[in-house]
Design a protein around this nucleic acid. Structure first.
Lengths: 205, 205
DNA sequence: ACAAAACTGTACTGGCGGTACAGTACTCGC
DNA sequence: GCGAGTACTGTACCGCCAGTACAGTTTTGT
């Protein structure tokens, strides 16, 4: 009974790649089953329709994403206990991870879904919104911790700063793809790091 | 002979909205001709296939975008001749323009195309790349002018800073959509303004 | 060995992209 | 006001794909 989960996983993995490369509407079930080497009936055994595939895709994506970021920022925290330096290290690690993708970042499922809103129901939009809010919550927590120690050098809303991290990752992915410069994403994350540094570093006076 | 251009324009406008809402692959020619109230033959009179529609869409989009930004930053320059203050005013105007979209930003065609790369040929990818490079060139020019007067407070590559503007607009659009907070985009542009300010403002010492 | 799980095979519907081509209405320049 | 494009309409067709239905078969855990 574990074989089913394996096939399902393989299908999801193939589907994710295809959706990120061509969009959801342009991804045919046909091509998925050819690559996964199963029949159409096999596909519909796992997912009752394309909508259920979409839901499974985004759930899987968000879960993997959370595990990844949890791990990364936990490692950063272990390297330095100061919240500011730990965040700066975390962003460095994030940039390094992005730079280690030679083909460039494959893309973010949340972005794909946002750019094809009409194809998905309210349910799925709530999932993507939850993902964005989870990112926000993660960073707002550290930013508050930081601002207690290092008063910010400009009057900014910490929620906006937290969202800026997601904004730059999402925007960086697009710019990487548009410019055909895979390194762009990492470079933009490093620039974000520069902003956080400027914003919280005590000014020499 | 002007009537043809009018129909073509209407088709492009309808197509742009549809593509931004559902993706290119999921946008059917059928729905376009129903909304434009012409026949399928009429459509293929204007565009020989869907690919040519895509090309026309992106060309039209980039042209309109350039005119818009040219106008906006020209106005900003008229309000203040100092390059730094003019850029800060320009970003303020940009944020205000974004905030004036009650339904939120409809989306960027360049982003849609990047997230459906496999659907388009090299030709179209060169067009989107050109668009991104045009944005870069526009801002690198002012940033160099600025840095001659105001030495930056951190060791950053001005090309990266120029690209950061596009990155934040693109990312802001996605975050606006994902979070269902139309104001998010403007807020993120204002935060970018805060970074530019911190980066170039002379430090009190 | 048995039951449930994990599929396969076959057959069908309806929608869409795209092609082909003949015919028609409108409109601009002369 | 007439001829020559321009800007379409109408009809008919092909092949691909999402999705449905359902009966049959193999694989797997216990």
């Amino acid at each position: 009974m574990r074989k089913g989960a394996e096939t399902r996983e393989r299908l999801l993995s193939i589907a994710e790649t295809a959706v990120l490369a061509k969009g959801f509407g342009a991804t045919s079930i046909e091509e998925l089953i050819v690559e996964a080497e199963i029949t159409k009936s096999g596909f519909f055994y796992h997912f009752k329709d394309k909508t259920e595939l979409a839901r499974a895709l985004i759930v899987r994506y968000l879960e993997a994403d959370e595990v990844l970021l949890d791990d990364l920022f936990k490692r950063a925290r272990e390297l330095n206990d100061d919240p500011l330096h730990s965040l700066l290290i975390g962003l460095k690690l994030l940039a390094e991870m992005m730079a280690d993708l030679p083909e460039g970042h494959p893309g973010c499922l949340v972005a794909t879904i946002c750019y094809q809103e009409r194809l998905f129901d309210k349910d799925i939009h709530e999932l993507t919104r939850g993902g964005a809010l989870a990112w926000r919550a993660r960073f707002v927590r550290v930013l508050e911790e930081i601002s207690e120690i290092y008063p910010p050098n400009d009057d900014v809303d910490l929620v906006e700063v937290a969202d800026l991290i997601s904004t730059i990752v999402e925007g960086g992915i697009i710019m990487s793809k548009a410019l055909r410069e895979p390194e762009k994403l990492a470079a933009q994350v490093i620039l974000l790091r520069s902003y956080i540094k400027l914003l919280f570093s005590p000014r020499p006076s």
